[in-house]
Simulated assay, not measured.
Amino acid sequence: MPAPKNHFKAALREGRFQLGMWVALGSAYAAEIAAGSGYDWLLIDGEHGPNDVPLIGAQLGALRGSVSHPIVRPPMGEAWLLKQLLDLGAQTFLIPMVETVEQARALVRAVRYPPAGIRGVGAALGRATNFNRIPDYLETADDEICLLLQIESRAGLAALDEIAAVEGVDGIFIGPSDLAADMGYLGRPSAGPVREAISDAFARTHAHGKARGIMTLALDQAHEYRAMGADFMAIGTDVTSLSAALDGLRRDFLGEAPSSNKRGGGY
């Protein structure tokens, strides 16, 4: 019996667009509710969400067997942390703040077993092997790992071609909000120069045969990014969806006008 099939990775390779949602509440119950909405993937956010390893593990368990593939974003791309998340059963990772080809190569090695990488051989203790019930896991695990690298700075854009060319990198994800801030457009991810940089990054990523990803809270931006060629994209978060629904319910009952101070952005 081989490692579980990574259907998200297979979809990207087949050119099938994958629609996603951020889950940042740090709740397995909330993740399970989100999975019922039918998104292709859900991102468990360990960078900005209040998540630690046990909480991420609980959410991976809640999503097990659902139609929504779990992607884990750790707070940083440290090999020791990726080792734990791999053994918990995570197969797809979004690593934030990647700026150099050296980082990209180190991350590829971190998620693979020797001799191709440095992942420790201990998954028999975790969910990855169905608690030592998958006899061929060690031989097949590497093929089902999907590594997505987040470019969100001018330095990352400058190194994008080198990063995207690294074997074992499956996709490049552009972080519009951080990129906008680094370019001098804090809070303005839809500014013209930022959009131009994203479009150029998508074109360069596609030239290397890698998947292009992005996230936004604004549906007009989402359609624009899709037209640019986004292969996987998140269009919201559990946090903002919950707050908007609660705020809207109260306003509807009281007959208040909708708030006009909310802006769409990326994460």
Rank of each mutant, 00 (worst) to 15 (best):
A222Q: 11
A10I: 12
L149S: 15
E167L: 04
G122H: 03
T205M: 07
Y267T: 11
E47I: 12
L186K: 07
T205V: 01
V111I: 15
A3S: 08
R204H: 10
A10E: 03
S177T: 14
S241F: 04
L82T: 05
A128W: 00
G209C: 04
R251Y: 14
M21R: 02
G15H: 07
I33K: 15
K9P: 00
G171N: 01
G248T: 10
A128L: 04
E14Y: 03
K210V: 15
A222P: 11
S241Y: 04
S260R: 10
A158V: 09
V239E: 07
A116L: 06
Y225I: 14
A141F: 01
N6L: 02
M21P: 10
V101R: 02
E139I: 03
A218R: 02
A207H: 11
L249C: 04
D142M: 07
H206Y: 15
H48V: 06
A128P: 15
T92N: 05
S190C: 06
A201L: 06
H223C: 09
M215D: 07
M97N: 11
Y225G: 08
A34N: 02
G77N: 08
D231W: 02
F202E: 05
F17T: 14
M183H: 12
E102S: 07
S27L: 15
G209V: 03
R133V: 06
L254A: 12
G187H: 07
P4L: 15
F202S: 09
F8A: 04
E14Q: 11
F202A: 11
G175M: 12
I118C: 07
G248Y: 00
L157R: 09
A245T: 11
L254F: 06
A222H: 08
A218L: 03
V239F: 13
V23D: 01
L160M: 06
A222W: 02
R64W: 13
D170G: 05
G213Y: 02
H69W: 02
H69T: 12
D142W: 02
